[in-house]
């Protein structure tokens, strides 16, 4: 899927308006001039390209060039990437980064340093009422997605444990592992006693 041009232009305008208002951020982003970043949102099957030019960022739905860094992940995982430590997110496997990792980390840190209030910025272009409704819709969708994810996870777990009896439940596993731990400790103690007796015998 490709983002329609008017949408990319709105995103571009919002980002550039925000950058223009913050000289520090503008200076920081100017260091990325000439870099091409690709973001692939797996849940929407959507790719967005960000070309850092001298004093602005171009947002495009396609670009006929190899990106310097590509971020691949769901929209939720990518938004978490900005808020959390990059290593944590990468190790969970929710986000894949290809290409120049250093640039990816640098960008991630820059975005974390300057959290963007997109709602406030977009409201200056789209108007307060429409922007509020748009973001309320996004927030509702995000909440619904998170809740649905938890419910599905819980249902699958319940089905596999209690109905199909394929796996043990959490407290059974805890009790089993704790018994194993105790047994291991007892064995260690027994081993130590035997070693002591052998030394005394000698």
């Amino acid at each position: 899927m490709k983002l329609p041009l008017p949408i990319t232009l709105i995103i571009e305008k919002a980002i550039n308006t925000f950058i223009e208002q913050s000289p520090k951020m503008r200076q920081q982003f100017s260091t990325y001039a000439g870099k091409l970043i690709k973001i692939e949102l797996t849940d929407f099957n959507l790719a967005i390209f960000f070309y850092f030019s001298n004093n602005s960022i171009k947002v495009m739905s396609e670009y006929e060039s190899e990106p310097d860094t590509t971020f691949i992940g769901s929209s939720v995982a990518l938004s978490q990437l900005i808020q959390q430590d990059m290593t944590d997110t990468l190790f969970t496997g929710n986000v894949v980064i290809q290409g120049d990792m250093h640039l990816g980390e640098d960008l991630k840190n820059s975005f974390s340093q300057y959290p963007i209030d997109f709602e406030e910025k977009l409201s200056t272009i789209l108007g307060d009422v429409f922007t509020h409704q748009l973001f309320a819709f996004f927030n509702r969708t995000k909440k619904w997605t998170n809740a649905s994810e938890q419910i599905i996870q819980s249902n699958i777990s319940e089905y596999l444990v209690f109905e199909r009896e394929r796996f043990a439940c959490q407290h059974e596993i805890s009790s089993y592992t704790s018994s194993v731990d105790q047994l291991r400790l007892q064995l260690d103690r027994l081993e130590a006693k035997i070693e002591r007796l052998e030394i005394c015998k000698k």
Partner: peptide, 16 residues
């Protein structure tokens, strides 16, 4: 403007 924008997207211009 849209036609020119498409040209830029297809150009794949790099900074150098």
């Amino acid at each position: 403007r849209i036609w020119k924008r498409k040209t830029i997207e297809q150009s794949g211009v790099k900074s150098h």
